[in-house]
């Protein structure tokens, strides 16, 4: 029971760090003004055009596709698989399980494998391409290894050492309803959970901020209309009055 409580507490802590930390960063991004119009052109001339541009970046990784096909294919497989895997995980958290979550369950299993393939490709690139190796810090490898290990332990649970999903779901539900239940003590599950907790905690302090950050990138989210609309930042307004213009 001590272990269960510890994990429950850690889990809650990690979720809090993830949510509050990311919210703090997003608030920071919102509050820092973009004083000049700097979209990378050709850029959309309307708001809806910008929404479409960002949609293409987030869903298809359009710029990455233009840039390098190998990185794109591995990265896209990795991310899309990860989203399917995460969607599949929703079943632990909601009761009754939404029908679309139930529907994707079978795909989720394949997604676990493709996610790993994608990451191995990215890791290989990082190790073998001299340019990418040059720009990598230890944290860049560790990040990949961390998510790889999460995926590997997950798959092992699924296919080799099954864990007691019913008890586990009760544990998760218990956390949500503040009515703590015991956690199955399979080592794989504990490792999987521990790594996920670490991932959630480092999210707002690491390059994983790219997920929210992309929406705030001025070169991608600005409308190309500087001649039509005057755009001025708060901090730049003080110059306006000082010379009487």
């Amino acid at each position: 029971m001590i272990l269960s409580s510890l994990f429950a507490l850690l889990f809650l802590f990690a979720v809090a760090v993830l949510v509050l930390g990311t919210a703090y960063k997003i608030k920071q991004y919102i509050n820092v003004p973009a004083p000049l119009k700097i979209p990378t052109t050709p850029a959309p001339t309307t708001k809806s055009g910008v929404v479409w541009r960002l949609f293409r970046e987030v869903v298809f990784f359009e710029s990455l596709f233009k840039s390098t096909k190998w990185t794109w294919i591995f990265s896209w497989i990795f991310h899309m698989s990860m989203f399917v895997v995460l969607a599949r995980h929703i079943r632990y958290f909601n009761e009754p399980v939404w029908s679309w979550v139930a529907l994707i369950q079978p795909f989720g299993i394949y997604a676990g494998f493709t996610m790993i393939i994608g990451m191995l490709g990215l890791l290989a690139r990082r190790i073998f391409v001299d340019r990418v190796k040059y720009i990598s810090s230890p944290s860049d490898y560790i990040m990949l290894l961390l998510i790889l290990s999460i995926g590997a332990t997950g798959l092992l649970m699924k296919f080799v050492e099954h864990t007691d999903i019913v008890t586990f779901k009760a544990f998760i539900q218990g956390i949500i309803t503040f009515n703590w239940q015991p956690l199955p003590t399979d080592p794989l599950l504990l490792v999987h959970l521990m790594l996920v907790i670490i991932l959630m905690i480092i999210f707002p302090f690491s390059k994983l901020l790219h997920a929210p950050g992309i929406f705030f990138s001025p070169t991608r989210n600005q409308v190309d209309n500087p001649r039509e609309q005057r755009h001025i930042a708060k901090w730049a307004e003080k110059f306006e009055t000082s010379d009487g213009q």
Binding site: K25, Q28, Y29, V32, P33, A34, P35, I38, L64, T68, T71, S75, R125, R126, V129, R131, V132, I135, S136, S137, D140, K207, L209, H210, G213, I214, F216, S217, P218, T219, A233, W235
Partner: peptide, 16 residues
């Protein structure tokens, strides 16, 4: 003062 500076320094994933 510059959102570009702040965001760009944070979000590079070193994808190469």
């Amino acid at each position: 003062k510059y959102r570009s500076f702040r965001v760009f320094l944070d979000i590079c994933v070193k994808c190469g």
